[in-house]
Amino acid sequence: MRPSFHPEGLSFDDVSSKSESQITQLWHLNGRCPEETIPIRRTKEEDLLRASSVANYGWNKYPQFDTTDTNKTAFSENAIVFVTGDKYYGTKATINAWKPQIQEQDEFSTSQLWILGGNATTDMNSIVAGWMKDINQTGGCNSILCSPGFVQINKEIALGGSLNPISVYAGSQYELHFLIWKDIKGRGDWWLQIGNKYLMGYWPASRFVSLSESASQIQWGGLVLNQQKNGQHTSTQMGSGHFPEEGFSKASYFTNLQIIDGSNILRFPKKSYIVADKPNCYNVTNFINNFYYGGPGRNPNCP
């Protein structure tokens, strides 16, 4: 399977980047997959033991948390930039990669882009791509285990595999480049490409209702699942774990934000908006085509 076209416009190489190198995965040290195969993250005994059943393995309710602990509540917190109001057929973005610290089991921190369509209370469809750090596998479908979801065709990148190297505070910075677009000239599938090299695969058009034609909103940024205990906010970090004001090499960032319009052209968004659920815990600054975001979670201003 191949898409019938690539959207036209700016490529990642057309936009200046401060990244020092492209990210690889740790398993590459042990070789690569042969042609006509794909890498699949090995299922371990502890992975199966954490699942409520074999049928539910890899496909968990999102977000997932322990409802038997009366001292604990769980909710997600965003720090995002978004565009809305038009018909969108994809997006392109560069994400700065970090390894945030996670406080609780079943918590996670993710930096990602969302393509959304429909109404949140009735027929919402979403496509999500990015990187995630967690202790246990939590929520949603974060791998190719939940067939018939994402169909991988690439033999170089393992979904769910560890990234290496990772950005260092006040040191070297590393990035992931994402492109998602709807193949409106072909079967209508939504395709994923990482960098200029890795065509990863596609989400079949048959999986969608409200994204069957186009998207109505695109979001970029961070999300943390906060397992709040005894009224205390989690100390799980978002991004680098530092606030946007610290800037390059200290705060996590998105850059090269582009959207795909009805003419299949990649364009910079003319106007975008920001949402930070708890800005004293995790915040975001908006500079239209690039932004910094993140935070440490619990701190004196976020008890």
Rank of each mutant, 00 (worst) to 15 (best):
Q101S: 08
G85W: 11
T70P: 06
I95S: 04
A55Q: 14
I40W: 00
N78A: 06
F75C: 00
A120D: 11
A79Y: 07
T43V: 15
I127E: 04
K92R: 09
P39E: 03
K133I: 10
F82V: 05
N56Y: 11
K87C: 07
G130D: 06
K61T: 14
I40Y: 05
E36L: 02
Q101L: 05
I38P: 10
E46P: 00
C141E: 12
C33Y: 05
I80C: 02
G140T: 01
Q101F: 04
T121K: 08
Q137T: 05
Q103N: 08
D66R: 14
E77N: 10
Y88C: 12
Y88Q: 13
S111L: 02
D123W: 08
V83K: 00
T122R: 11
K99F: 07
T67M: 13
Q64S: 12
G140L: 01
A120N: 12
V81D: 07
T91N: 07
A129E: 12
N119V: 10
S109N: 14
K133Q: 14
T91Q: 07
N136M: 01
N78H: 13
M124R: 13
F108V: 01
F82A: 06
K87A: 11
T43M: 08
M132S: 09
A55T: 10
P100F: 00
S109R: 14
I144F: 00
N71D: 10
S143R: 08
T121G: 09
S126G: 10
R50Y: 04
S111H: 01
V54W: 10
P63Y: 04
I115G: 04
T110R: 09
Y62C: 12
A93F: 14
S111V: 13
L48I: 15
V83S: 05
E107L: 03
A120R: 14
L48P: 01
V83E: 06
K87H: 12
A93Y: 14
K72Q: 15
N56S: 15
E107S: 06
R50T: 07
R41L: 15
R41E: 14
S126Y: 13
Q103K: 13
I115K: 04
D134T: 10
R42W: 03
G85C: 06
Q105C: 04
D86V: 05
N142Q: 11
T91R: 06
P39R: 01
A79V: 04
Y88P: 11
E46C: 10
K61D: 07
I135P: 00
D47W: 06
G139T: 09
I135R: 13
V83W: 00
A74Q: 07
R50K: 12
N136K: 04
S53R: 06
W114L: 07
T138S: 12
T43A: 08
T121Y: 04
